[in-house]
Amino acid sequence: MTEGGFIEVDRVEKVFDVRRKTGFLRRERRQVRAVDSVSFTVARGEMVGYIGPNGAGKSTTVKMLTGILVPSGGRLRVAGIDPSRERTRLAHRIGVVFGQRTTLWWDLPLIDSYRLMHRMYRIPDARYRENLDRLVELLDLGALLDVPVRQLSLGQRMRGDIAAALLHDPEVLYLDEPTIGLDVISKAKVRGFLRELNAERGTTVLLTTHDLQDIEQLCSRVMVIDHGRIMYDGPLAGLHEVGESERTLVVDLERELPPIDAAPARVVRVEGPRQWLAFPAAESAAALVARVAAEYPLVDLSVREPDIEAVIAKMYADQAERVVS
């Protein structure tokens, strides 16, 4: 394997030809550039979050990485394999979970789907039994193995699907919205499991999501894509700087007063004696607190770190503006 990385994506594009009926027998042809010259590498054992607004190109990227779609341009390698050319060989080394679909057999007990994987992937018996036992324990599937899949809840089914994708010991796991529609407890279970998988087995994980808590709790690295282009690639914390984010100072005054004047900080909200002041994340909070305390009757105060959701929402919006103008 090359030094470059386990997953190598080099200026990869995907263009869809979309034909739309505009009248009887009249069609309009349009090209959608779903992925536009995307490059990144992922090292073995990394856990990377892949985020972006609806239609950004996340699923399209994952589909190219798994060999489902053939790229329109660029170079793609996973474990040294060109996915769309050697789909079958690659299949033995990757695991895929699509949150919106299932690989499980609807009418049959969960265990039957696993037995099929066992034989389909030719997993050695001992290995299969060992992996199954471990997955059943970690994902809490014991009571579900004999239940027909159609009777499982969404969260149970998702855990079942994740186990199905891991029975053959894949080196990399792709998850496309694995926590979609799950409640807090199920999400926590899935996250806890993924963390353990990555730590114990060193499985490389690439996951797309709209739930930033997934990323905060799991991924040391995040890639943001919008309109098919990578907007950011780095640690989650670094997003604050790129996003020109703001921190918030919440002050409780003795009584209701007119909005505090403490530029460059500005009051963004007033509720009785409580006021919210936004100030650039890079500025010192201490200086601002000192100024406010000197001029106003303070009872209490707290500083809130920028909300990552807000940072990203701002980033998406900025990008949309740039595209429009």
Partner: peptide, 10 residues
């Protein structure tokens, strides 16, 4: 759902 068939070996 055809996608699922493509990520399986065989």
């Amino acid at each position: 759902s055809f996608d699922i068939l493509l990520v399986r070996p065989g």
